[in-house]
Design a protein around this nucleic acid. Structure first.
Length: 766
RNA sequence: GGGACCGUAGCACAAUUGGUUAGUGUACCGGACUGUCGAUCCGGGGGUUGCGGGUUCGAAUCCCGUCGGUCUCGCCA
């Protein structure tokens, strides 16, 4: 048989199927797992496309000897024959065949791995954040991260396709530009040709897209890098991130919403996460919620709409109350708001304390609450309130026995905000366990017949847990469906059981779960007494789909956020101004948005009542973007800025480019800029933005792989006319923290560095 | 800049809550094994418990400082 002629491969590692049996093929890839049985050696060869099992036997002693020497993550090139497997592996796409190797070359051997690409049993792929960043190219080989980056491409591609299909033109705008009017700190780039002057990296291409509108391009978009020197969050990358930046001329905000909601509504079907349950959009068109409505109902301007538990205004019940905390707040023009947590009292005193601790950790004073029993009412403010007031609350909120009612008071926003935090915390606590986990290991040897058949055919067992569903006196069987054992149409088996101290109550799951592995399972899934647990076995997709269906049913019945649902909304009618900490009038959002009512509103209304054509898009409690219909009228802009203390001259100098453009025929225009990274996080259920970025920075904005930021050569600084002066940065060495004033040094390589004498040895003083 | 939690072998985690020689898994090295597939079994090497100081007869454990990590408030569209 002739050898495949391509120097590296004839097929990929995800390609071989039974129809290739008998062919002679060449594969290249990484040695993923090596299973050495001396007389038989198996190597799983992995590339971007999949995994193929290579086999070696002792008919060729020299070959198998070399196969046994192969170290994980070495790059191999092999030639061999595709044969059918004696025992297929349903977990691999190529699992029906294997490659009987006849030639093996180690193209690029791998040293001992600093982090393992194959995740060891019982370990998390999230462990050792620093090591992951330092060895990012290895981390990126791991299944989940590799998959995330590929899915990110699908998201970005969908965004591009959608925007083009809607008639938008893609642009690239300057990266070296000047400081823009957004509020964050700038990254500055010193200019060599103009010593002492600086470029700024764009915080967003805001000014440029408005220039393009003034230039007549009508519909602009860009997958735009944005640079902001601000501190990180779990969902906010430090330094840089990407937005789908878009802007349109001659539009209302509804025109902008249409483009964006069509893009997001189509996204879940364009991006399928392998092995995960599909996402669906809760409501289309997306609800438009006025800013103050969102605050009043959810206590936040980024409401989580996947479950109810809305806040209720009870100010009228306490207007003349003898309970001073509430009546004083109302007397000062504020509100008293209440949130009913159904069954909240049945979850024990610990649950109330946890909620109280949560709000205290966030800086609130405490959490006044009432506990409604069959007849009596308890709780922290039971003694300070009258029976009439407590009955009024019971009636207003339709309280049942076992409900917990928590209160917030203060200004309209403050009263709602604390309850908004409680609302989210309740949902967080109650939805613990809802995420689907792979638990195949526990059931590897089960003899439960339905499960056994499904595992053998599909290879996967997954599980989720509903916290305390069986405790709350609810009929969990009717919520989830009658039978404890089900076989789905595609051969997927589903087992459901409530949980007691000793384990599952239902026979089938008890039978499937060997007593020896019960503890392992309980630890893995987090089962506790009163929980209800569902497991499904079959293919990766089949088991996910079956569980997803069950879970959605439970979430609906229990008022929990369904992990498979995307609840988008637009928040509209933001206030144009607000008062800052010193009580001064300030722009509440973007100073370049158009006030509703235009110049007349600015002249005649109380500034705090003026609304802006300013909006946000949120999903599942996460802000994806804000945007606005812009203010393209210089006279309105001067007046708007005047109110916050800017003179005409200041506006002209600071925003010269914009004002100039708007004085030469600018179209009405508006847009928004949804975050690309956050969109991907949402779709992939990733809790941290680093999981969807190929080369992220750590919290302190360092790239541990590239070693950025770093010192530069002394001559570079001289060319730029710069000196380093750390006198305003304390008297500690930035490396070791010792109390030794850092000094500038030029080290042996010519780098200009800062540190104490101990940290930069051998350096000569600059 | 503030707060919370964390830091033990390359990596993940233990250490009966202050008590003998700091353990287990994985990775690494060696051995056994003819169909494995997260292989299994046996053996071996590997530790300044982040660093500095303090309390104590005795510190991985308690206290202070510091460095590093994650989350969070401030900040941020």
């Amino acid at each position: 048989m002739s050898e495949p002629s391509h120097p590296h491969r004839s097929h990929t590692c995800g390609e071989l199927r039974p129809e290739h049996i008998g062919q002679r093929v060449k594969l290249s890839g990484w040695a993923y797992r090596v299973r050495d049985q001396k007389h038989n050696v198996f190597i799983d060869l992995r590339d971007h496309y999949g995994v193929t099992q290579l086999t070696f036997d002792d008919s060729q002693p020299e070959l198998i000897a070399r196969a046994r020497e192969v170290r994980p993550e070495s790059v191999l090139r092999v030639v061999g024959n595709v044969v059918a497997r004696e025992k297929p592996n349903p977990k691999l796409e190529t699992g029906e065949v294997e490659l009987r190797v006849e030639r093996l070359e180690v193209e690029s051997p791998c040293e001992t791995l600093p982090i393992q690409v194959q995740i060891p049993k019982g370990e998390s792929d999230r462990a050792d954040e620093e090591g992951r960043l330092r060895w990012r190219f290895l981390d990126l080989r791991r299944e989940r991260l590799h998959r995330n980056i590929v899915l990110r491409d699908q998201v970005v591609r969908h965004m591009r396709d959608h925007m083009h299909a809607e008639g938008f033109v893609e642009f690239q705008t300057p990266i070296l530009t000047n400081s823009s009017p957004e509020g964050a700190r700038d990254y500055l780039v010193p200019s060599r040709l103009h010593p002492g002057q600086f470029y700024a990296l764009p915080q967003a291409p805001q000014q440029w897209k408005q220039m393009l509108m003034a230039s007549g391009f009508d519909k602009y978009f860009q997958i735009a890098p944005c640079f902001r020197d601000e501190d990180a969050r779990a969902d906010r990358a430090p330094g840089e991130f990407y937005q789908l930046d878009m802007e349109m001329a001659y539009v209302t905000q509804e025109d902008v919403f249409g483009v964006i909601e069509r893009m997001y509504a189509a996204l879940p079907e364009k991006v399928q996460v392998p092995g995960a349950s599909p996402k669906r959009v809760q409501q289309f068109p997306f609800p438009r919620i006025p800013y103050w409505d969102a605050i009043d109902r959810f206590g936040t301007d980024k409401p989580e709409l996947r479950f109810g538990l809305e806040l209720c205004d009870v100010s009228d019940l306490f207007a003349s109350s003898s309970f001073a905390l509430f009546s004083d707040a109302i007397g000062l023009g504020g509100r008293v708001k209440a949130l009913r947590i159904p069954g909240g009292a049945r979850e024990g005193k610990g649950a109330v304390r946890r909620l109280e601790k949560h709000v205290k950790d966030l800086g609130y004073g405490g959490l006044p609450h009432l506990i409604y029993g069959d007849d009596e009412v308890g709780g922290s403010i039971a003694k300070q309130t009258t029976p009439e007031e407590r009955a009024g609350i019971r009636e207003r909120l339709q309280c049942a026995s076992g409900d917990l009612v928590v209160f917030g008071c203060g200004s309209r926003a403050a009263a709602a905000k604390v309850l908004g935090e409680v609302r989210l915390e309740v949902a967080r606590q109650r939805s613990r366990g809802l995420s689907v986990r792979e638990v195949g290991e526990v059931f590897a040897k089960t003899r439960q017949p339905t499960l056994r058949a499904a595992i053998d055919a599909g290879g996967y067992v997954k599980a989720f847990r509903i916290s305390r569903l069986a405790l709350a006196g609810r009929d969990w069987r009717s919520i989830l469906g009658e039978e404890a054992v089900r076989a789905g149409e595609d051969g997927t088996a589903v087992l459901v059981s409530a949980w007691e101290k000793k384990g599952p109550t239902e026979g089938p799951l008890r039978e499937a779960l060997h007593p020896k592995v019960l503890k392992t399972f309980e630890k893995l899934v987090g089962c506790a007494e009163g929980d209800v647990v569902a497991i499904a076995a079959g293919t990766s997709e089949g088991s996910s789909r079956a569980l997803s269906e069950l879970r959605s049913r439970a979430c609906q019945a229990l008022d929990l956020p369904d992990p498979d649902v995307l609840a988008f909304c637009f928040i509209v009618d933001y206030p144009f101004y607000e008062l800052d900490e010193e009580g001064q009038l300030a722009f509440s959002h973007n100073p370049f948005s158009m006030p509703q009512g235009g110049l007349e509103a600015l002249e005649t209304q109380d500034p705090l009542d003026v609304l802006a054509w300013q909006y946000d898009i949120c999903c599942n409690g996460v802000e994806l973007s804000s945007g606005a219909i812009r203010n393209h009228r210089p006279e309105i802009m001067y007046r708007a800025f005047e109110k916050v203390g800017y003179t005409r001259e200041q506006v002209d100098t600071e925003f010269g480019m914009m004002i100039k453009a708007f004085k030469h025929g600018a179209p009405p225009h508006g847009g928004m800029a949804p975050g690309v990274d956050r969109t991907v996080m949402l779709l992939l259920d990733e809790p941290n933005i680093r999981e969807v970025v190929a080369f992220p920075k750590n919290q302190r904005c360092q790239d541990l792989l590239a070693g950025a930021p770093g010192y530069v050569y002394d001559r570079q600084l001289r060319e730029l006319g710069l000196r380093i002066d750390l006198s305003a940065h304390g008297t500690r060495c930035p490396h070791c923290g010792t109390e030794a004033p850092p000094r500038e040094h030029v080290d042996a390589h010519g780098y200009r560095r800062v540190g104490c004498d101990r940290c930069i040895p051998g350096a000569s003083e600059a």
